[in-house]
């Protein structure tokens, strides 16, 4: 019988790679072969992740507008001292002028993260619960919710900008209905509201899919067992609280950690949508780092690097805290 061409290619590849692999295995041993296979990935990580992190550290302790680390003057922790120069940390106006936007951005970001993550997880959970119950066209609705995730953040922002601009689609529609439009992106509160709304709209599909997978992994017989062994009738709410939610907790924790980390990195959508304004109402921490390093004169690469290290530490601590709290909760159960 003639061999399938795909199988033939596979067989040919095995035949050709077998001798060098055997030769390598004889040289390095079976146990070390795993490291050898991981080496390309390690190299990619080292070049594109660890080396930039190391360079960032070098920039944070050096000063000047030169790019090459060898041409930069060592200043030790000076940039960190500038970062922590505020006399009142609740009022960024008391900080050194060059870090004013960083602290303002950090407070805005913390506010954004708290509201956005609660909304994101809540909305994604609700959507996943509904999708999980759908008998028909589940794939279609899953695709509908996932679609915005595939759009570039700039495209998302431009679509919403056309809708929310002073003379945009929303105000045009309100006008046709005889209602007064609002300056959606020119009012500080509305600008923050829409930043959160659009971020949730654009990313919720991703988290919905993760939660949906978690829901579908819960064995059906657990629900039956719970209803049989209970002395009280099981309502939908009780099932959710007593069975679904506890079993979904690990998934929700993963989703929350990812959502917090991603929310701290908010930049593209809001940058295109509001340019950080009005005033500093939607200036987030990543924007302030970018502006410090690249757009405002003089370009403070060192200070921007110190800011990014501080941001990384904050995310690291928050994630750690989330994990500790959730582990404690699991142990309590």
């Amino acid at each position: 019988m003639a061999m399938n061409p795909l199988n033939a290619v596979g067989r040919w590849t095995v035949d050709w790679t077998n001798p060098p692999m055997r030769w390598l295995q004889a040289r390095v041993g079976v146990r070390r072969m795993a490291f050898l296979f991981l080496l390309p990935n390690f190299l990619a990580l080292a070049i594109f992740v660890f080396l930039p992190m190391l360079l960032n550290g070098v920039y944070a302790v050096t000063d000047g507008n030169r790019v090459l680390p060898t041409e930069r003057a060592f200043v030790g922790l000076q940039h960190f001292r500038t970062l922590f120069s505020c006399t009142n940390y609740l009022d960024p106006a008391t900080c050194a002028p060059e870090v004013f936007f960083f602290w303002r951005g950090l407070y805005n970001t913390v506010f954004f993260v708290v509201i956005e993550v609660v909304c994101m997880v809540g909305f994604s959970l609700a959507t996943a619960l509904v999708l999980n119950r759908l008998v028909r066209a589940q794939g279609f609705w899953r695709a509908v919710f996932f679609y915005p995730v595939m759009l570039s953040p700039v495209v998302v922002a431009l679509i919403w900008k056309w809708i929310l601009d002073r003379q945009g689609l929303l105000n045009g529609t309100l006008d046709r209905l005889g209602l007064d439009g609002l300056p959606w992106l020119l009012d500080a509160h509305w600008a923050m509201f829409w930043s959160i709304f659009i971020y949730v709209w654009a990313h919720a599909g991703f988290y919905t899919l993760i939660i949906l997978a978690g829901l579908q992994a819960i064995p059906k017989d657990l629900y039956e067992a719970a209803s049989l062994e209970s002395d009280r009738p099981f309502t939908n709410g009780r099932i959710f609280r007593k069975v679904t939610l506890p079993l979904l907790m690990p998934t929700l924790l993963s989703v929350s950690v990812i959502a917090v980390t991603k929310a701290f990195q908010v930049f593209d959508e809001v940058w295109v949508l509001t340019r950080g304004g009005p005033g500093t109402a939607t200036t987030f921490v990543l924007q302030s780092i970018y502006e410090t390093g690249f757009t405002t004169a003089p370009r403070e690469y060192g200070l921007a690097a110190a800011m990014s290290i501080l941001l990384a530490l904050i995310i690291f601590l928050l994630t750690g805290l989330q994990l500790v709290l959730s582990n404690r909760r699991m142990e309590d159960r």
């Binding site: 936007f101 002073r166 300056p183 992106l185 020119l186 509001t274 340019r275 950080g276 304004g277 009005p278 005033g279 500093t280 939607t282 200036t283 924007q287 302030s288 502006e291 757009t295 405002t296």
Partner: peptide, 14 residues
């Protein structure tokens, strides 16, 4: 108008 000076943050030119 609110669309120019107050609308953006930092040193962005609008």
């Amino acid at each position: 108008p609110l669309d120019i000076w107050p609308a953006a943050s930092g040193s962005q030119v609008v």
